[in-house]
């Protein structure tokens, strides 16, 4: 158990109706490793992340978190069987997720958003929850914004509250689904800095992103998806360095087009 990777994905297949979005993904992430999922839109990277979060149920294949099966396991008769809800809940509690659209609850303050699950789901006392929530908000640099409602915060601040909300539940793994894609360019930096600090602190992270610079500097591993398959996988140097896979060249050209491809 202790030697198990933080995340292990085996033969993951996801179909929506007849379209196969993921066609057999195998992936491992060690503890403390930052994995960046890259790829063109429709490549299945967000679906993969949502499967790891169990927001989507994979059609086939297995996911293990810290050695424990998530959602489905191989039954005694060799069939893939669904695990009981309590098991699923237990494993999922190790996972924190940050969404593209922040998804802060609009009727609660920043503090309320961070405290909610601590009180409602973890049964913590209000005072204890508030103390922890304030600490997490301070870590993301929003101590003095605690009593603001989401509508009173900038996009970057909202996303930092969302990160604090996930961190307050002390997850083993943090998943980020395009965390800066809905932000104005000048606000992405503050979110990426929080994520960078988190990575330096040893958090296991899986990040779906278009921020190539962040992926190259913070990511330990780059996974490039194309049409539901892993096309290239390796360290940033291996994936972005020359010789480069022609598909990645093409991707960098279309998705950066800011001369950044040349910087790598």
């Amino acid at each position: 158990m202790t030697n198990a990777p933080a995340i292990r994905v085996q033969g993951l297949v996801k179909r929506f109706g007849k379209t196969e979005v993921l066609t057999g993904i195998d992936l491992e992430a060690a503890r403390g490793e930052v994995t960046c999922l890259l790829g063109p839109s429709g490549s299945g990277k967000s679906t993969l992340l949502r499967c790891i979060a169990f927001l989507e149920e994979a059609t086939d294949g297995f996911i293990e978190i810290d050695g424990a099966p998530l959602g489905f396991a191989l039954g005694p008769d060799g069939d893939r069987m669904r695990l009981p809800p309590n098991d699923i809940r237990g494993v999922r509690s190790k996972i924190g997720m940050v969404f593209q659209q922040f998804n802060l609850w609009p009727h609660m303050t920043a503090l309320g958003n961070v405290m909610e699950a601590l009180v409602t789901a973890r049964g913590m006392s209000k005072a204890e929850a508030e103390e922890r929530a304030r600490a997490r908000l301070a870590e993301v640099g929003l101590a003095e914004r605690a009593t603001h409602y989401p509508s009173e915060l900038s996009g970057g601040q909202q996303q930092r509250v969302a990160i604090a909300r996930a961190l307050a539940l002390e997850p083993k793994i943090m998943l980020f689904d395009e965390p800066t894609s809905s932000l104005d360019p000048e606000l992405t930096g503050e979110v990426l800095n929080v994520m960078r600090k988190l990575a330096e602190g040893g958090m296991t992270m899986v990040v779906v992103t278009h921020e190539i610079g962040f992926a190259a500097s913070v990511g330990h591993k780059i996974v490039f998806l194309d049409q539901g398959k892993i096309l290239v996988e390796g360290t940033p140097g291996e994936v972005f360095g020359k010789p480069r896979h022609p598909r990645i060249d093409q991707f960098l050209d279309t998705y950066l087009d800011r001369g950044a491809a040349g910087l790598l």
Binding site: A53, A117, A121
Partner: peptide, 25 residues
């Protein structure tokens, strides 16, 4: 939908998600 997904990821459970998130909104 994302607000319910966030509640799900925070482990709120179906009933708490309805009572604390979906109904008030």
């Amino acid at each position: 939908k994302g607000l319910m997904e966030a509640a799900d990821m925070c482990g709120l459970g179906a009933f708490a998600t309805f009572r604390r998130i979906r109904l008030p909104i």
